[in-house]
Computed example of a mutant assay.
Amino acid sequence: MKRNIAIVAGGDSSEIVISLKSAEGIYSFIDKEKYNLYIAIVKKGEWAVQLPNGEHTPIDKNDFSFRENGKVKHFDFAYITIHGTPGEDGRLQGYFDMIGLPYSSCGMLVSAITFNKFVCSKFLHNFGVNIAKSIRLFRGQSITNEDAVAQLGLPIFVKPNDGGSSFGVTKVKEASALQPAIERAFIEGKEVLLESFIPGTEVTCGCYKVGNFGQQRKEVVFPITEVVTKNEFFDFNAKYNGQVQEITPARISPELTEKIQSETSRIYDLLGAKGLIRVDYIIQADGEPYLLEINTTPGMTATSFIPQQVRAAGLDIKDVMTDIIENEF
């Protein structure tokens, strides 16, 4: 009998638009000969399953079940593709843990840590991972332009500490622009991160591992993608409106490629990650990679980084999806 798979999309942040596109991508990637697929929308005011006829039917929050043709149906597995809260910050993972529904991504604690950029970078820095200098502000806190520049220099990246897809991100080149940038970032999140600017080449590397530690463990680290944009940084337009050149494999040396792939694999294990993750870096002129952020529910449209890297590795995305799903059974 085919397993019922929920592709869980939506969310309560500005990233909902990207999440719904990722859900369409994942729907196209998963083997329909093996699984029955449904897109489940989870957002404030609506938990619903999209049926094959296009209609939406409510989800019972007690067990994440739904009705189809008058019959109650249960899911066997949830593929989480919510970018932002509640699917990337551990909240949905905690709910699925409580009702006993297997899911694709990192667990509750790891998701919560990686979603908080400041906490994640400080945690990994303890293990020797290179990170930018940073300052975190909670709502109600403030910092003077002079203090920020004294600690971080210019330019300064100002971003929501608990958001993604470059919503609310500003590259501040002049001190006078700092306070408006902080206000803008607070629109998107409850915490704001100020980071020192690191010049260099931006790259990203995907990874997944299935099975238990030991001989039966399958570890896959994908080819690296180089991100080139004429924009000030890899902003929303670069990510989603084509204002970028994405080169896979990246135009870096074999030695540096191996170094970044090894660091990505190490970060995966340090965190105790699960499912697909993507780690973003800036490579300084001296060849040292600095961590930018970790995506535990990376974008999964046909043109997203992970599908690009899967193709470059000579793998079939359908097989990767099957690995992720079957790892939970």
Rank of each mutant, 00 (worst) to 15 (best):
E24A: 09
D97R: 02
S134W: 11
F233D: 04
I306S: 01
G107K: 03
E55I: 12
V227S: 00
E191F: 08
L178E: 01
F329R: 00
G90K: 02
G70Y: 10
D12L: 14
Y35R: 04
T85M: 05
L315Q: 01
T264A: 07
E246Y: 12
D147M: 13
G168H: 09
L154Q: 02
Y268T: 01
Y240C: 15
I41W: 01
S111H: 05
E146F: 13
N116C: 11
L178V: 01
V279A: 06
T303H: 10
K239Q: 10
A23R: 09
W47Y: 05
R136H: 03
D31R: 07
K173M: 15
E202R: 00
V320P: 10
V221L: 11
L92C: 09
L92S: 01
E219S: 05
G163P: 12
E33W: 13
D31I: 13
Q151L: 15
M1K: 05
N62W: 15
F29M: 12
F213N: 00
S265M: 15
F123P: 12
I294F: 12
G206V: 14
L92R: 01
L194W: 10
G200F: 11
T229N: 05
G54I: 08
T296G: 04
D316A: 11
A273V: 08
R266W: 13
G140E: 07
I59W: 07
K61H: 06
E191Q: 13
